[in-house]
């Protein structure tokens, strides 16, 4: 756990909390519609108030994702997006912004690139961590070691059906923050979140002092505020990816995404989040 003390992600989220706000973790798929746009978007989103930026590495078979991110992944792959290209994009973003930056990737692209090489490359580029939705703690020893060695966080997911025993095991290996999945299901915008978030994040806090984020299904400011009352940060993904999809190729793309980010951040900075 020693290296978590140096986590840029954790430090940023704690700083936000200390100012009485809740954190905004914003997701877009890297390479959708192309990596040049991804870099522009990322830098602008950071300026618009994103506290932690999450970049999705597209994968051909994203089993944890709903239709929105599936389609974004296919667009990115069709455009020739590669792992190497994404690491270079991270470097380009880092040269212009100090926003904490996390990659969300399925395990196979990391495995083929080589976990050690991936960790070293991402660290050199200025990345801060990884979220790997199909890599439970039972399988993550090799990657965790490689990331620890390079000062990067492996951020775990917990779900509404994670029993206390697993929660404890997951928390013990967690770095950066703990990502609570709001529903048993895949990513995507949802009208309502029925999970008892207060019980869920409360249980997580019994085992960990890391910031606790909630994601999956959160799209608008009102929903973000409701969710934020029970956690330290909210993750918004599909709602932003839908804008990228709708506005791809148009001059207004970056602006429209940033308007949404500002709207969300403003809501999370208000008094009703606490």
């Amino acid at each position: 756990m020693t290296r978590t003390a140096n986590s840029r992600i954790k430090a940023r989220l704690e700083e936000v909390l200390a100012s009485g706000q809740k954190g905004l973790i914003a997701y877009i798929t890297a390479g959708d519609p192309d990596l040049k746009t991804t870099v522009e978007l990322a830098v602008a989103m950071a300026e618009a108030g994103t506290d932690v930026l999450e970049l999705g590495v597209p994968f051909s078979d994203p089993v944890a994702d709903g239709p929105t991110i599936q389609a974004a992944s296919q667009r990115a792959l069709a455009g020739g997006t590669t792992v190497q290209g994404i690491i270079e994009a991270v470097q380009a973003i880092r040269s212009r912004s100090d926003v904490p930056l996390v990659l969300m990737t399925y395990y196979n692209p990391v495995l083929q690139y080589g976990p050690a090489k991936f960790a070293a490359g991402l660290a050199r580029a200025g990345g801060d961590g990884l979220i790997v939705p199909d890599l439970p703690p039972e399988e993550s020893d090799e990657l965790l070691k490689a990331l620890d060695k390079n000062g990067l966080d492996l951020i775990p997911l917990v779900t509404p059906n994670t029993p206390p025993g697993r929660l404890q095991m997951i928390a013990a290996r967690a770095r950066g923050f703990i990502y609570c999945v709001s529903v048993t299901g895949v990513t995507g915008e949802r009208e309502n979140i029925l999970t008892d978030l207060s019980a869920m994040t409360g249980a997580v806090r019994q085992y960990s002092e890391l910031p606790v984020a909630v994601g999956f299904g959160i799209s608008g400011p009102e929903q973000a505020v409701k969710v934020a009352r029970h956690c330290d940060a909210v993750v918004v993904g599909s709602a932003l990816v839908n804008i990228v999809s709708r506005r791809a190729g148009s001059a207004g793309l970056v602006n429209e995404v940033c308007e949404k980010v500002k709207e969300l951040k403003q809501a999370l900075a208000g008094p009703e989040v606490n």
Binding site: A64, D134, P136, E139, L157, T159, T162, R166, V181, T184
Partner: peptide
């Protein structure tokens, strides 16, 4: 190698 939801 599955999402956490499936582990239990």
């Amino acid at each position: 190698f599955v999402p956490e939801t499936l582990m239990p």
